[in-house]
Design a protein around this nucleic acid. Structure first.
Lengths: 133, 133
DNA sequence: CTTGACGTTGGAGCATACTTCAAGGTTTAT
DNA sequence: ATAAACCTTGAAGTATGCTCCAACGTCAAG
């Protein structure tokens, strides 16, 4: 068990962020030392890292909370529910990935058509690249 | 040329959002009718749609402004700059796509392992699915 | 035994991206 | 000609996700 600063360091967030996640209900109220310090372990580390990865993938904290609740109270969720939530998110991600790829394709076509030299970029418009798709 | 409501409708945003984009410098100050109404055309529509798509792909308005500035003042950007910005964003997108795919893979493995029935979800934790990767 | 790093709380503040409002003027349909 | 729908402005308000602060307690090192 280690304190909040250590957890924060391991997860590359600030202690404030950890406390904020707790307040937001994403992390359950932690064990406390005799002096009142929050104490954390591997499981908490995994959770915070999960939150960060999910956030990075574009999920809101609310959505992440939904996903995490599956674990916090697994007895209150049926497998049917879990599968439904997961399948919904899989489709959502599919769409987001497709959109990102489309966007990337536009940028690639822009980059390829752009001479890359030091002349003026009158012919290198990202909108034109997108419009020509 | 049509008014802000029409533009908003075409781009599936509110008129307020359009005015907000203008105030934020993403849209240049539009032509006005005699009575002072903003007037827009195809080009503006393309721009707003671009902003929306880019936002959806996870770019901030500031980043989008950067991308759009390439067009607004193409004479002030060299092809070198344009190529650099585009290539940077391509790499960023590559990473984001990879992260989303990783996330999706976790959800798929969860969904596959989950029986999907109406029993309690004690064995269907998303964190476990992620940890087992 | 004190200095410095770390922890506690509640509450305020901040950046982003809108959204709503008040109080008016304009346009369009009947 | 009048009602409904649309537009104008500036300014305030909202939701999300932190971030910082004050004023204090804890603890390890020298």
């Amino acid at each position: 068990m280690y304190r909040i600063g250590e957890l924060a360091k391991r997860c590359e967030v600030t202690a404030d962020t950890v406390r904020f996640y707790e307040k937001s209900g994403l992390l359950s109220t932690p064990v406390r030392s005799d002096s009142g310090y929050r104490l954390y372990s591997q499981a908490d580390e995994a959770k915070v890292k999960f939150i960060r990865r999910a956030k990075n993938s574009g999920f809101t904290l609310q959505e992440i909370g939904e996903l995490l609740s599956i674990r916090v109270e697994p007895k209150h969720h049926t497998c049917e529910e879990v599968k439904r939530i997961a399948d919904e998110k899989i489709i959502e991600l599919e769409q987001r990935i497709a959109e990102l790829k489309r966007f990337q394709k536009s940028l690639k076509s822009l980059s390829e058509r752009c001479c890359g030299g030091d002349e003026s970029a009158v012919n290198c418009s990202i909108l034109d690249a997108l419009e020509s798709q």
